[in-house]
């Protein structure tokens, strides 16, 4: 998957992965197999899937209660850990929903080392996933 290879070029990228809405790991790339393995990514994918669903529920409710906009649909959820961060995106799924497609693409995520993480760069790549020609 080109997007995973692009994500692995981000500063501090440790792993990139795709997973189903239900959390199962699909494709992945791992830069440090001694620190991250597919089982780690699979559990992380389930965590991120759950958090993305909760965030979507809260964003939808928040907009209805406050009449504020710009929170929904949730595009990315990021967990900032002690040394690593994980950024996951639902944007490609939302784009498919918008045009009425029922077969949704997977979530896409990247694990970054905090000391060199550039969140804006990760968002930009996840929101424009087509690799440069």
């Amino acid at each position: 998957m080109a997007i995973l290879d692009e994500l692995m070029r981000l500063p501090g990228a440790m792993a990139a992965f795709e997973f189903r809405g239900s959390g199962e790991l699909l494709e992945h790339r791992i830069a440090y197999p001694d620190r991250i393995n597919p089982a780690t990514l699979d559990l992380l994918a389930h965590m991120c899937s759950a958090n993305m669903s909760i965030a979507a529920m809260q964003a939808r409710g928040w907009e209805q209660v406050t009449a504020m906009s710009g929170f929904y649909p949730v595009q990315e959820f990021t967990l900032i850990g002690f040394d690593w961060s994980v950024v996951v995106s639902a944007l490609r799924r939302e784009q498919h929903k918008r045009v009425g497609q029922s077969n949704l693409p997977p979530f896409t995520g990247v694990v970054l080392a905090n000391e060199s993480a550039d969140y804006e760069a990760a968002f930009a790549l996840l929101e424009h996933p087509e690799p440069a020609a």
């Binding site: 620190r35 991250i36 504020m68 710009g70 595009q75 900032i80």
Partner: peptide
């Protein structure tokens, strides 16, 4: 979740979590 994750995969860099972000089209929490 971080504590559970750490008990299964100890020594990972996610635990303990420092924070989180939720990004919509205009606003980020």
């Amino acid at each position: 979740e971080g504590a559970m994750f750490n008990s299964i995969h100890p020594g990972n860099g996610l635990h303990p979590p420092r924070g989180w972000l939720v990004r919509g089209p205009v606003h980020t929490v």
